[in-house]
């Protein structure tokens, strides 16, 4: 799984964002910033994604959607909260239909502040996310090896053959 280090795929979900951060996320993918040259691809499918970028905060209506997208992503996965709304609710924190930052629903690994977050800082956030992804992957590999050692030394069963 070492290709993750080279080409993380991202999925973008717009919570209650005002579009400011959304179009900056899209601007990262277009020629001026062009993160695709680093292998970062925007995918629409949670099952293909390694990094979840969320813009905007969560509310009663979209919290299930956020939770589902997060759960459908395969491990290891990293969540990046883009913009101040996703971090804490920002200027809308006092609104009746805003629950606050995305971390109320799912665990967030990287926070990218800003209103709207600049493409440079979003890219910086994704670079940090790749490091965390690597750490998570290493931890997973270690765990799998440990389990394998235990299995081999244990009684023979069908699952040992794989």
């Amino acid at each position: 799984m070492s290709f993750l280090k080279k080409s993380p795929w991202i999925i973008h979900y717009d919570g209650t964002s005002c579009n400011g951060c959304d179009i900056e996320v899209l601007a990262c993918l277009t020629p001026l910033y062009d993160v695709e040259r680093f292998g970062v691809v925007n995918t629409g499918n949670p099952k293909h994604a390694d990094i979840l970028l969320i813009t905007g905060s969560v509310n009663e209506q979209n919290k299930d959607v956020v939770w589902q997208i997060f759960n459908q992503m395969p491990n290891p996965k990293v969540v990046v909260a883009v913009g101040i709304c996703a971090t804490s609710g920002g200027i809308f924190a006092e609104c009746y239909n805003v629950m606050g930052g995305v971390d109320k629903i799912i665990p967030v690994d990287v926070y990218v502040p800003g209103c709207a977050a600049r493409p440079e800082s979003i890219i910086d956030g994704v670079v940090k996310a790749v490091e965390i992804l690597e750490e998570k992957r290493a931890a997973m590999t270690k765990k799998r090896k440990m389990a394998k050692v235990r299995r081999v030394s244990g009684p023979v069963s069908l699952s040992n053959m794989f």
Partner: peptide
Amino acid sequence: FVHRGLEKLVEKKEFTEYVYVAERICG
């Protein structure tokens, strides 16, 4: 999915401050 209820924020922000909220209706 994107409803925030920002029209009600006028009760919490002064009318000069509300310009910032109005600008964030749409980016």
